[in-house]
């Protein structure tokens, strides 16, 4: 069942927020205001938004090195996100984490993670915590096709299956692990097929269709809350940008492949759907929504720039909890 028109508009706003956030983060990275590395989520917005729309605030997620989208979809504060990218004191991690380590435990966002597959066992621990508490919370692991070939994925999903943990394992199959095509590294083309080996449902979804992702997530969440254990959802999608935004980053993917996927942009797809379904969502409303999103992002940059850099003494803080 499709979500209400209001909810669809919220999902559209979130997807557009991610898109605009990534455009801004890439631009500010190139200008030197953001340091280190930025991995763009553009093209994959429907996965984070579709799944998180099926969750409650107290449900937990874990992200990857490509983490901004999951953060925004789970409801993170743009100001504190941007301040973290800018390396400022007001950032989510007080300027200690940067793009690859944004977390907001208060909204159940257990962090981006710079190690491929590194977050999967951790969020499985959140799933165990949810089961021990018995309050119906679920935990969601986002990861890529690359991580699905790594040991921690298999170890974790086996334990979650054996213990019936309330988990969703959401594979964002964007067809490439850095530069290596998934077609060359997966023994079988569908990650979802691996679910059979762990005795859990495996579902393939069009990862550029936010409503399809949402519906698959709703079903998996219901199953998890009912105590029936985890589901593996494979979202077939594509990243528009190179692996990172570094200027020297090579991108060996065929240009025509990239262009073909841009035509499957998940955002206009939802706009079209809203217009067809309602006949009420006008171009003016869409423009107004985008204007608001851009304003929120401009505000976040203003907030980030207004925050001081951390004092050097802060380097010694938080190594250990007191």
């Amino acid at each position: 069942m499709h979500p209400s028109p209001e909810k669809q508009r919220d999902m559209l706003r979130q997807m557009q927020t991610i898109r605009r956030f990534e455009e801004r983060a890439s631009a500010d990275f190139r200008s030197g205001a953001i340091y280190g590395v930025v991995h763009s989520y553009i093209g994959e917005e429907a996965v984070a938004v579709g799944v998180c729309a099926a969750l409650n605030r107290e449900d937990q997620i874990i992200s990857t090195h490509r983490g901004h989208g999951h953060c925004i979809a789970k409801g993170a504060d743009l100001n504190r996100m941007m301040a973290e990218l800018y390396g400022r004191e007001a950032g989510y991690c007080k300027g200690k984490g940067g793009s690859m380590h944004i977390a907001d435990f208060g909204i159940g966002m257990l962090g981006a993670n710079g190690i491929v597959a590194g977050g999967i066992p951790i969020v499985t621990g959140a799933g165990l915590a949810a089961q021990l508490e018995g309050k119906g919370r679920v935990a969601v692991s986002f990861f890529g096709d690359g991580a699905s070939n790594a040991g921690p994925f298999h170890e974790s999903i086996n334990i979650a299956g054996a213990w019936k943990l309330p988990m969703l394992y959401v594979c964002e199959n964007n067809m490439y692990a850095v530069q290596t095509p998934a077609a060359k590294s997966l023994a079988f083309k569908d990650v979802a097929a691996r679910a059979a080996g762990y005795g859990i449902p495996g579902v393939i979804v069009d990862g550029n269709d936010v409503l399809a992702v949402y519906e698959a997530a709703v079903e998996a969440v219901a199953r998890a809350r009912a105590g029936d254990g985890p589901t593996l959802i494979e979202c077939k999608t594509y990243r528009w940008r190179a692996h990172t935004e570094r200027p020297a980053q090579p991108d060996y993917r065929p240009p025509e492949e990239i262009e073909a996927w841009k035509k499957k942009d998940p955002i206009p797809r939802l706009v079209r759907h809203l217009k067809q379904q309602q006949g009420q969502f006008s171009d003016e409303e869409w423009q107004e929504l985008d204007k608001q999103v851009l304003k929120a992002l401009e505000d976040s940059v203003t907030f980030a720039k207004a925050s001081p850099f951390p004092a050097t003494d802060a380097a010694l803080e938080d190594v250990y909890a007191d």
Binding site: I122, V123, A130, L132, I159
Partner: peptide, 23 residues
């Protein structure tokens, strides 16, 4: 008191995640 599979990477990470969730 849980007997885990022989999967130290997962059981170590599970401890990290559970600790971050209040355990």
């Amino acid at each position: 008191v849980r007997a885990t599979p022989i999967a130290e990477s997962a059981l170590t990470g599970i401890a990290v995640g559970a600790a971050g969730s209040g355990f």
